[in-house]
Structure formats: structure tokens, C-alpha cells
């Protein structure tokens, strides 16, 4: 490609500006977080990130994000399947609506879901007689994260399903497979990497999510308090060291998830390339 570097101008300028802007906006501020953390002693750090209230918040944050990503994997695959394979009235509308969680501000999603699920809301009032409460507790956290994560699964699985070669399915049918066997042994393996990528993306987004969750969670310490809210709480008490320590744990989790997603995506590309 050195030929094209000679022909096309602007390499130094655009790469230089990219690195400069990236450092200014992302890298230097993120490194400020690590430097601040290193001013803490190891004991201070461990005490801050393993206090019972913080541990309970990890459990809720990661547990709820995992559950929500799991639900989204099932229903996201279903929605992607229905959008790719079938035509029905309102098809285009549903396809457009799937992106709503990307476009709708999280605070709006939060208050709207709360209004729906609270005891006097459309859905909440139907469930209350049965003793089911979905707002102001852990259930609410999972529901908010399902809303936030759905498009990640649908939009990663959808293009792979579109590209899937139907000849393989025909071959399976000709060889005597039932439709379910064809799905399980032929279609599912080809979309599994994409599905796992979508799962990981929905999970990563759910772990960091703040706006939609705090309205519906009830935010009771030890019960329904998510980790980002712990950081905000510490900041409001001017406990910068504690906030920084917990934020470092979250940032490390983000890095790990980013690496995982990158790995999954390259696996997915290899899979796509290996197909005939």
C-alpha cells in the first residue's frame, strides 16, 4: 500500500490530527483517572472498592446487565429473524423502531419506563393485583437494560442472517433434516459468533448504563443501587478518592469487555470468510 501513500496526500495531517484529538479528548483524561488512583495506597484502594455497599452494587450491575443481555439474545435473535425472513404489515416500521434505544435519550427512557411500570402505570396497574412489582426494585434495572441493549443484538445478527446462504438450508432439507435440525445444526452455528458479539455489546453497554436505570431502580443501598450511582454518590460527598477507585474498577471492566468484543468480531469475520 506504500504506492497509495505516495499518491494520496494528507496521511501525516489526518493521522496527526486523529492522534492529537484522541489524546486530548480521550487518552489524557482517562490517564488522569489512573494517576489519581495511584495516589491512593493499596489498602485505601481495596477498602474503597470492596466495601459491602460497593460489592452489592457490582453484583446488581453485572448481574442485571447479564440477565438483560441474555433476554436480548433470545428476543433480539427472534426480532432479527422475523425482520430478515418474513414480510408482514408494519415490517418497515418495526425495523426502524428497533433503533429507538439508540436515538431516545436515556433519561427519557428512564422516566417513561417508570411511568409505565409504577403501580398506577399502564402495565404496572395490570400486574399489581398479582403482587408483581417491576418498578423501584431490581426488576426495574433489568427491564431498563433490556430496553437499552436490544438494538445491539438485532443489528449485529441481522446482517449475518441476511448474508446466510439458503442453499445450505436446502441441502440440509434434501438430506432429510427437519426444519428445527436445520436451524440448530446449520443456521445457528453460522450466526453464533454474531449473536455472542451482540450479547457482549449489550452486556458492556448495560454495565455502564446510568440514565435509564436510576429513575426506575429505586436506588436503595445494598439492594438496587448500581455502581455508576455509587460513583456519583461519592462525588457528591466530595470523596474523590473513593469515586476514582470505583471508577477505575469499572474502567478496567470496560477495557476487558472491549478486548473481548474485538476478539469476537475478528472470530466473526474469520467465520464469514471461511464460508464457501
Amino acid at each position: 500500500m506504500s504506492a497509495s501513500r505516495r499518491v494520496l496526500p494528507g496521511f501525516n495531517l489526518t493521522l496527526g490530527y486523529t492522534v492529537f484529538y484522541l489524546s486530548l479528548i480521550v487518552l489524557i483524561p482517562l490517564s488522569a483517572l489512573f494517576f489519581k488512583t495511584f495516589t491512593l495506597s493499596w489498602e485505601q484502594f481495596v477498602t474503597a472498592v470492596t466495601s459491602p455497599r460497593v460489592l452489592a452494587s457490582y453484583q446488581l450491575t453485572f448481574g442485571a446487565a447479564f440477565l438483560a443481555a441474555l433476554v436480548n439474545s433470545v428476543f433480539g435473535l427472534l426480532v432479527a429473524w422475523v425482520l430478515v425472513r418474513y414480510r408482514f404489515p408494519g415490517h418497515k416500521l418495526v425495523d426502524a423502531l428497533v433503533d429507538l434505544p439508540f436515538a431516545l435519550p436515556t433519561a427519557v427512557a428512564g422516566i417513561s419506563l417508570t411511568a409505565l411500570l409504577a403501580g398506577n402505570g399502564w402495565v404496572g396497574s395490570l400486574l399489581e393485583p398479582y403482587g408483581i412489582n417491576l418498578a423501584f426494585n431490581r426488576n426495574g434495572v433489568v427491564i431498563a437494560l433490556i430496553f437499552i441493549g436490544l438494538p445491539f443484538v438485532v443489528r449485529t445478527v441481522q446482517p449475518v442472517l441476511e448474508d446466510a446462504e439458503q442453499e445450505l438450508e436446502e441441502a440440509a432439507t434434501c438430506l432429510g433434516a427437519t426444519r428445527w435440525q436445520t436451524f440448530y445444526h446449520v443456521i445457528f452455528p453460522s450466526i453464533a459468533p454474531a449473536l455472542l458479539t451482540g450479547f457482549a455489546m449489550a452486556f458492556a453497554r448495560g454495565v455502564g448504563e446510568y440514565g435509564s436505570v436510576i429513575f426506575i431502580a429505586g436506588n436503595m443501598p445494598m439492594v438496587s443501587e448500581i455502581t455508576p450511582l455509587i460513583i456519583i454518590g461519592k462525588l457528591e460527598q466530595y470523596d474523590y478518592a473513593g469515586a476514582t477507585a470505583v471508577a477505575t474498577v469499572m474502567l478496567l471492566a470496560s477495557f476487558a469487555l472491549l478486548l473481548l468484543i474485538n476478539g469476537l468480531q475478528s472470530w466473526q469475520r474469520q467465520r464469514a470468510g471461511a464460508l464457501p
Binding site: P29, L33, V207, Y210, I231, A243, M250, F255
Partner: peptide, 15 residues
């Protein structure tokens, strides 16, 4: 994309 918005805000407070 993968950094929690709260952490993003915090790093600017620290700077």
C-alpha cells in the same frame, strides 16, 4: 463507547 458515561464525566472533574 465502552466507557460508562459516569466515568467519562468523572475524568474531566479529575482533570
Amino acid at each position: 463507547f465502552s466507557v460508562s458515561p459516569v466515568v467519562a464525566g468523572l475524568v474531566y472533574v479529575l482533570m
